[in-house]
Design a protein around this nucleic acid. Structure first.
Lengths: 239, 239, 239, 239
DNA sequence: TATGAATGAGTTTTCATTCAT
DNA sequence: TATGAATGAAAACTCATTCAT
């Protein structure tokens, strides 16, 4: 699922695993400790998730205030800690929660029967841009989450990141027709280079968006830029 | 100087500037406000720099405690602020200070008369690895610095990052013989893809190092891996 | 209510407003932001108010230490800020709180049906002295408050002072029989002179009390002194 | 010298002493402890006095920073403390220093042969206003000084204030022709009332100036207002 | 399940004063 | 006489977490 994670955050992923199509099965019971929260009616769940996401997205892990969250969500201090034990768990829960939403949505839309590598990537880029427009808050939060540096949560977060990418990579690459690639170079390396290229391209887009006046993303321009890369990569890596 | 910054931190750089070989001269007087500190005997300077770097590297900007720094450095509370005014200036000073050391060292070693792009990159990778071994703390701090997300320092830090990359790009690309590249594709895009590849490769190295047991970096393996990339890139992008 | 404010602090008041008998109704909801505090049982409220008042009265706004206050009140650091947000709000709250107590008490005692100006003033002086004896701490605090010079709170404090005097002036002057005053001089100026006289007299009393050994106020003497002023003023300003 | 102190600061003065024409002789050796400073060439003295005055006037005793003073004066930290021992002494020295300047100037200008009480007061008001225009910084500092509330310096300051007023009162009242006052009331009380009136009037002027937009003092208006008081007071207190 | 008052160690920063040079 | 680096206690304020109700 590199196209997803990459446009969101640009993590370096385990290409070896990816290409091999392997993945660790995600611990299904990860949400067990938040069972109380997940039993709430979904209106309240949403209110809480949105309030928490907003605060974390705006201020980052350290500076985010649980006081603000409960104020915004309209619940009491104690209740937040009743559901999530502590700030760290709350954060990690939210990362999972958002990621699950986004991934599920992505795979509903992507056509996994398209065998051409570049066509599939092109579609992924487009889906990604659509979703960015549709759920800007979630993406803002996830982007921050993957950049998050705070010492306290780093180890758990890194583990989570790896789990996520590992799980989804294989699925994305299913059914690709690798016979179109030139045979005189190492295919794994070629795939890595292509992946790297689109990851970095996405990072640039986010980076520019962040510092451009108005912070507006010009999607048409991105598609055009992506086409330039497709052109070079196809000419050089297909035979 | 992308190989340096990239191995350290993987920033997205302005390729247009890079390819044009332009660079803004760095403001020489940037250290004037830390004159008091720089007048100290170097033993004390080092003690302070190391203590501060250690704390920032371990905990990031927000969580790093000036209390811990002075305790570690064996100086008084007031003195730190006497030299650096406040936490933010202290941080930004340290970024500059480390960057200057690293860049100066890098350009002492790199051979800028080598006209072959890949040979020059290969040498840069090797120099980088040498330096990583020699000054692991500085690199750890700089890596964290470039990932740093803290709201308070972000604007200044981003400005600094761009200055740094802009200044050094041109120098690294001086005298490269571009005639060896194939003519049927856009050279700018090709150079971007190559740059992206080595940036991502470096990120992977750091990433693995961080989560490997013992955090040991196997440099022989990295060189070997880099050679695989050189092989593909040369075959596909040279004519 | 000039006799009150004046004995406490000697502010210069807007005689025009005073003579016109106008007054702005005081915003009743001013205490809303301290609702948490006001919901406490009164024993604790008193403990806190007294501790805070003592510290501010002794040291003035700037030098007063919130640390000392919580120590004296036997509450935690955080709690004080939970109730009052910050030092400034705490101070302004206390000014209001004390002022309200004092004013309410004063108007319970003063006879507003007495039409003779000097008789009413005479009673006010006596009431004032009674209250000074009964609540010395509150008066000490308010006196300091009205002299307070600290840059941070000055603007709000001055606004508060004016509000207070404006509101109460009219009430005190209601129903006075001005026909007894001589007609050949400007009545407004005459009333100002009388007001000034008792204000300054009160200032002198406080001033002497402060520097007399033992800080004892001799009320009998003050009454006697006041009578000397009444004698002169009546002879000169009544026809 | 009530007209002076009063326009500056409105202190309550010992009218009994004043009327009796008594005064404690000022301790001539008060400056002995600042002998080192007074031996400096006057250019340097002025530089220091002005820098210190500026900082105290702007920020009040507590918030004034000795760092700012030495920076502004262009001397070293140590030197300031060499001359003045500590902040408190520095402040008290400055109060004396300024007061001496102002009083000397005032008595150079006032005509002590004018026997009419109101004419002399009228002249004093005018001189005062002239001086306010000529030395605004000194007056600003002295005004702040007399309002100053900081616990640490209060006792010494109050003592100084009393000394000052006591010393100068007698001089101002020398040669007044008291026979013009009506004989049926206590003269001491009458003089007190008159003094109070001009003191309070001045306080009002300063007060209004402080909160008027632009903080400009309209001297013509003040003279006119003073004339209204003269009119009433003469009519009522002269026979 | 839900509340929100209470905690207290923690934070960065300031500043008068000292003292070796 | 003159310097300014060095001190360290003190300041206001924060905030995740607990716990009695």
């Amino acid at each position: 699922m590199f196209i997803l994670t990459d446009l969101v955050n640009g993590i370096t992923i385990e290409l070896t695993d990816m290409v091999n199509g392997l993945g660790i099965l995600r611990a299904k019971g990860a949400f067990r400790m938040f069972a109380k929260f997940l039993r709430l009616d979904s209106e309240k769940q949403d209110r809480i998730v949105n309030a928490v996401m907003k605060e974390f997205a705006q201020k980052g892990y350290e500076r985010a205030s649980t006081n603000e969250m409960v104020k915004e969500a309209g619940i009491s201090k104690g209740l937040l800690f009743h559901y999530f034990q502590n700030k760290k768990q709350l954060y990690l829960f939210l990362v999972d929660y958002c990621y699950d939403m986004v991934v599920a949505e992505f795979y509903k839309k992507i056509d996994l029967t398209e065998p051409d590598f570049f066509k599939r990537i092109r579609e992924a880029v487009h889906i990604k841009m659509e979703m960015l427009t549709q759920y800007p808050d979630i993406f803002k939060f996830m982007e921050e989450a993957f950049l998050e540096d705070a010492a306290e949560i780093k180890p758990e977060l890194e583990k989570k990141k790896r789990e996520m990418t590992d799980i989804n990579m294989g699925k994305f690459f299913e059914g690709i027709d690798y016979s179109k690639f030139r045979a005189d170079v190492d295919l794994k390396i070629v795939l890595k280079i292509i992946t790297f290229t689109f990851e970095k391209m996405s990072e640039e887009v986010l980076y520019k968006a962040k510092f451009a006046p108005g912070h507006e993303i010009n999607y048409a321009e991105i598609r055009q830029e992506a086409e330039q890369y497709f052109d070079v990569l196809i000419k050089c890596f297909y035979h």
